[in-house]
């Protein structure tokens, strides 16, 4: 082992490294927050489809989840980036290519749709974890199907699913790094730019790792707090 590497942390504080890092962090956080919000919205919709009585909706929901879960995210990003525009009608394709920030939009679409499938699965297993007696008890008090979900199942399921929702956010956050492959300058992209510009890989990658780990720590702390606030006495939230 020969370690002839001299550290130079100072270079991270001057441009261009400094602005690359700051923009990268902003991009990572912005992209993953947006994707997470979309993923939750779509995921809850898909998850609910799978709970309905309609066989068709159930099938569609199930097919969505299987399709998006069983193709690697990177392949999905490539398809949205390289294939999807070519399948559009000609004028649409021109319009799409004329947009600003096509890589970012692509990453947002790909990440949201991918994460939505995972959220839908979490919704389903969250609801499946609710004791069957709850449904029967709620119906026996005269609530309708929708009311049962709205007043009994959803509040219960939401509390039980907090850890899962938090961990899905962390997954979104980490997965946003793949956007660098289609040219989105998020934090891992920034780290690599700094590395190839200065050959200072350790410093550069440390910044990226620190970004992910700090964010994780914050989310874990916040979710722990939220979970304690919303805890149902007598129910231990399962991981």
């Amino acid at each position: 082992m020969n370690l002839n590497y001299t550290f130079n942390w100072g270079m991270l504080l001057v441009d261009p490294a400094r602005s690359w890092i700051l923009n990268g962090i902003a991009m990572t956080i912005g992209l993953s927050l947006l994707a997470w919000v979309f993923a939750l919205a779509i995921g809850v919709t898909i998850g609910s489809m799978r709970m309905t009585r309609s066989r068709w909706l159930r099938f569609l929901g199930g097919a969505y989840v299987e399709l998006f879960r069983n193709v690697p995210l990177l392949v999905q990003l490539f398809i949205w980036f390289f294939v999807f525009p070519l399948l559009l009608p000609r004028d649409w394709m021109m319009a799409w290519n004329g947009l600003d920030h096509v890589p970012l939009l692509t990453a947002l679409i790909g990440l949201s749709l991918y994460m939505a499938a995972r959220v839908a699965e979490q919704i389903r297993s969250g609801i499946a974890a609710i004791p069957k007696g709850q449904f029967a008890a709620a119906r026996s008090t005269g609530l309708g199907e929708f009311q049962v979900y709205r007043h009994v199942i959803a509040p219960y399921a939401f509390r039980v699913m907090i850890p899962a929702i938090a961990s899905e956010f962390m997954t979104t956050f980490k997965n946003s790094a793949l956007a660098l492959t289609i040219g989105v300058a998020e934090i891992t992209y920034a780290a690599r730019s700094i590395e190839s510009w200065s050959f200072r890989g350790i410093e550069a990658f440390t910044v990226a790792s620190a970004t992910y780990m700090t964010t994780t720590a914050f989310v874990v702390l916040f979710m722990g707090w939220l979970e304690r606030r919303l805890r149902i006495p007598g129910l231990i939230a399962r991981r």
């Binding site: 790094a177 891992t188 780290a191 690599r192 990226a208 790792s209 992910y212 780990m213 720590a217």
Partner: peptide, 10 residues
């Protein structure tokens, strides 16, 4: 808490 892609770069 790190993405795989970053570990690969590391």
């Amino acid at each position: 808490s790190n993405p795989l892609i970053l570990i690969v770069f590391w």
